[in-house]
């Protein structure tokens, strides 16, 4: 089944609006995966029920001081400075640890064991018969989102997958869009929006991921977005106009296609464009 990621170079472009409304007009079963784990908000629009929740942890080192000779190998190895070699003992900084397991492997004394440290959770539930919602959520104060994103993506899915990716172009973005058959980049036609669209487009090109663009709050400046599309040979998939009614529906947590039926066709068209592109690439390969 195909996997679509909805992403944007910066926050606040209406990425979630596109993802949830697209899910709503999909003809078959669909799984929406909220990988914007710092601030997941897909559930606010789709209201999944009967949630099943699992914790997400990363393995952090625990040092057995009876076996440790304070040789310092582990601290020298850790590129995240999560281990401090203080000469008489090793101090572990859990919140700096990325759970790579390297220190455990390099310790010549076998003094390190790994313990799970919970950094977030993944929940799943049904919004409708057709729509499953998977939500990755990072605990407040944590900084390491890729493990939570990977845990969300490792969940079993039904039908087409729509990933709501975190904004930006850094590791969390890459972790979320990796493996997508098509990335839908949502942008506003403002100078900042177009600048960040360009960065996201370059990141996707470097990752060899095909993408198309949706302009949200379309209007003046659309031509600058089209230019970016041209440069990357990426299709312009849809334009959603600037409309106060859309913002109001959003703030009430309502789905656009339900609250404002005049936009239903726009999303059905978007869904069809995406299906065409996916079919065409499926035939090629």
């Amino acid at each position: 089944m195909s996997r679509i990621a909805v992403a944007s170079g910066k926050g606040g472009t209406g990425k979630t609006t596109i993802a949830v409304n697209l899910a709503r007009v999909m003809p078959g079963p669909v799984t929406v995966m909220d990988c914007d784990v710092e601030e997941p908000n897909v559930h606010l629009f789709l209201s999944p029920r009967d949630l099943q929740t699992e914790p997400v942890g990363i393995p952090v080192p625990k040092i057995n001081t009876d076996l440790c000779t304070v040789c310092g190998e582990c601290a020298r190895f850790c590129e995240y400075n999560a281990l401090g070699d203080m000469q008489t003992k090793i101090v572990v900084f859990n919140e700096l640890c990325h759970g790579c397991g390297g220190c455990t492997r390099v310790c010549p004394e076998g003094a390190i064991t790994e313990v799970d440290r919970v950094i977030g959770e993944v929940s799943r539930g049904k919004a409708t018969d057709n729509i499953t919602v998977i939500t990755g959520r990072m605990n407040v104060g944590e900084a390491l989102s890729p493990p939570v994103i990977r845990a969300a993506k490792a969940q079993a899915v039904e039908g087409t997958v729509i990933v709501d990716a975190p904004p930006g172009t850094a590791c969390p973005f890459a972790a979320a869009v990796r493996g997508a058959d098509l990335v839908v980049l949502v942008t506003e036609p403002t100078p900042f929006g177009v600048h960040d669209l360009g960065l996201a487009a370059e990141t996707l090109a470097a990752m060899n991921l095909p993408f198309g663009v949706v302009i949200n709050r379309s209007g003046e400046g659309d031509d600058t977005v089209e230019e970016v599309c041209h440069r990357h040979g990426a299709p312009l998939l849809a334009r959603i106009p600037e409309d106060r009614a859309i913002a109001e529906a959003y703030s009430r947590g309502e789905l656009l296609v339900d609250a404002l039926p005049q936009y239903r066709d726009a999303f059905i068209n978007l869904e069809q464009r995406i299906a065409e592109i996916l079919n065409a690439s499926g035939e090629e390969s």
Binding site: N81, D85, M86
Partner: peptide, 14 residues
């Protein structure tokens, strides 16, 4: 990128 303080403390100890 991160943990500069830990690194500095290690240097101080060394």
């Amino acid at each position: 990128a991160q943990g500069a303080g830990v690194q500095a403390a290690q240097t101080a100890a060394r």
